[in-house]
Amino acid sequence: MAAEKTLTPTDYISHHLTNMTAGGGGFWTLHVDTLVTSVVLGILGIGFLWWVVRGATSGVPNKRQAFVELAIDFVDDQVKSIFHGDRSFVAPVALTVVVWVLLMNAMDFLPVDIVSWLFTNVLHLHYWRPVPTADVNTTFALSLSVWLLMIYFSIRIKGVGGFVYELFCSPFGVKPVWIAPVLMVFNLLFNLVEYISKPLSHSLRLFGNMYAGELIFLLLGLWAATGLVGSIFGAILGVGWAIFHILIVALQAYIFMMLTIVYISMAHESH
């Protein structure tokens, strides 16, 4: 927060919602804050699992291992209930997604202004957005990766022919034959809409929730800046929203994982 100028609400919000950038500009811009935060969180989360799992015993597990087993068992159960097949790839993917997204979402718990103050005054980084999933790049990166996995598995299971056949011949079929061309057009349109809407809804759901959550914290912060009464109400509502946000953070991570499993398992089913 630049103290020397008069700070308008717009300045405040846009300061909080501006990424730290690097790189060539245009498409070749890189959001350093998003990338660094997410990679650090990924290394922490997956690294923690790895650290525990490395010493995993088949005997009586200690509390740390029991916790990790509980989490992994939870993910495995979810995968098992949706996906019927070899889980040795799908389940770890779901685990990666849920751990990573949960940690990235959890960055929303950090008080926005304290994080901002620390980065501005201690690290001298003027712009730093702490929630990677409130950056549409992250959510699209995740959903498009899942989308590619979906197409990969679809082609691997059904072959290129089967994949193309499904594009044109499902869900309405091609019978009776005399309207087959019309049906094929409709099938293709239907499938295209589905293939486009899947990654869009997958990513934008997560992004929207996280972005809105961040924004509401910012608005409450703005209110708190209006004086004593505003501070009191801002603080109370901030606590309420933070508590509610615990649910949203976990729920969105869970939903993102479930949709990942559903999309990949749908790719395994032929029609």
Binding site: F27, T29, T34, S38, N137, A141, L142
Partner: peptide, 9 residues
């Protein structure tokens, strides 16, 4: 949308 997407992927 920018290069961040690719790096995140």
């Amino acid at each position: 949308i920018n290069f961040t997407l690719i790096s995140q992927a």
